[in-house]
């Protein structure tokens, strides 16, 4: 069950403040990195929703993001729909695709679930790669961004687009929390703890898994559409399993089942990638060592480690402050 703690609020505030500061002050290159982080954060929120709260470790979320990107590009570039309609269509199509994948894979668990989702993801990748309609390995270009000029926002400007992505990420976070706190989200947590018991209580387990996987797919599709708008070009590489693998690394690195942790993981991965790749082409080795360190430490990622170190102390201190102090009884003379 997802719970906000004082430490999580603090982490969220720091992340938001850091992103706003970067959006306000960074140059073009800094804004590109920020947008990359924000889109990755959306994808890992989607993945954490199913993996951290439903035990569904998916290796097809990269492909779902790709479905969203290709759907957005197809609806706008080939069918001639407006970017807004294309965006809504892309989210809906990706959600429906994810629901079907979730429904099929819901009966498998553990490594079998991972392999089944990997198979779906690679099927999508192969199909797009070999289909001329989608541009094959050349990909698709000429993708337009949303037109918000009526609201006085020019999304062709990188700073405006970064702020737009930040706003969307905020809404995605709130929607994710709302889903996890709903009856559906609570049932999902119950399923992760004991499918057998939830069935015995009368719950149709596969349906709950499929529904949440579909919602998660909608977020991945939104991230894909934003990614397509960002680069204005997409290629089949977006659907490759390595994108899903990287998202999973980010979730584990940040802290599975915490929502905040994966967003911290997204910041850590993108910053490390850009900083280290300027120094060495072997930056993957550093990320790999970091991941091994996190896993071997038995902490739940970077944020899980922080929660274990200071979260409990912070909660206790706040409880001590907020708890009413006993008043001294007047003594009889």
């Amino acid at each position: 069950m997802f719970r906000h703690t004082p430490l999580r609020y603090i982490a969220l505030a720091l992340l938001a403040a850091g992103a706003l500061f970067q959006a306000a002050t960074a140059g073009y290159f800094g804004l590109e990195i920020l947008i990359e982080i924000l889109i990755l954060a959306m994808l890992v929120l989607a993945l954490d929703m199913v993996a951290g709260f439903g035990g569904m470790v998916s290796l097809c979320h990269g492909a779902l993001m790709g479905v969203g990107a290709y759907a957005f590009a197809t609806f706008g570039g080939i069918l001639g729909l407006t970017p807004l309609v294309s965006l809504v269509g892309a989210i809906a199509l990706t959600g429906a695709t994810a629901w079907v994948i979730g429904a099929v894979c819901a009966r498998s668990h553990g490594i079998y679930f991972i392999m089944a989702t990997l198979a779906f993801g690679q099927m999508a990748y192969s199909y797009v790669f070999q289909t001329p309609f989608f541009g094959g390995d050349d990909g698709m270009g000429g993708i337009e961004r949303l037109d918000l000029t009526a609201l006085g926002i020019d999304l062709t400007d990188s700073r405006s687009f970064a702020l737009f992505c930040l706003g969307v990420l905020g809404l995605v976070y709130l929607a994710t929390v709302a889903v996890l706190r709903s009856g559906l989200g609570r049932s999902l947590t119950g399923v992760m703890h004991s499918e057998q018991r939830m069935r015995a209580l009368g719950l149709t387990v596969w349906r709950v898994k499929a529904d949440v996987f579909g919602l998660s797919g909608m977020i991945a599709g939104l991230a894909g559409a934003l990614s397509a708008m960002h680069i204005m070009y997409i290629s089949p590489g977006l659907l490759d399993w390595t994108v899903s693998g990287e998202a999973l690394v980010v979730v584990i690195l940040g802290g599975l089942g915490t929502l905040v942790g994966p967003m911290i993981g997204a910041v850590a991965l993108v910053v490390l990638k850009h900083e280290l790749s300027a120094i060495t082409p072997y930056w993957h080795l550093v990320v790999g060592l970091l991941l091994i360190g996190v896993v071997m430490s038995r902490a739940n990622g970077i944020f899980g480690w922080i929660e274990a170190q200071i979260g409990a102390r912070l909660d206790k201190r706040l409880n001590d402050i907020t708890r009413p102090q006993p008043t001294e009884e007047p003594r009889d003379a």
Binding site: A178, V179, R181, S182, G183, L184, R186, S187, G190, M198, L201, G202, L203, T204, R207, V208, D211, L215
Partner: peptide, 17 residues
């Protein structure tokens, strides 16, 4: 959790069951 499944709120998307 058990009561929300029985009452049908266990699969609702909005609102805390």
């Amino acid at each position: 959790l058990a009561a929300s499944i029985h009452t049908g709120f266990g699969t609702r998307l909005w609102g805390d069951s």
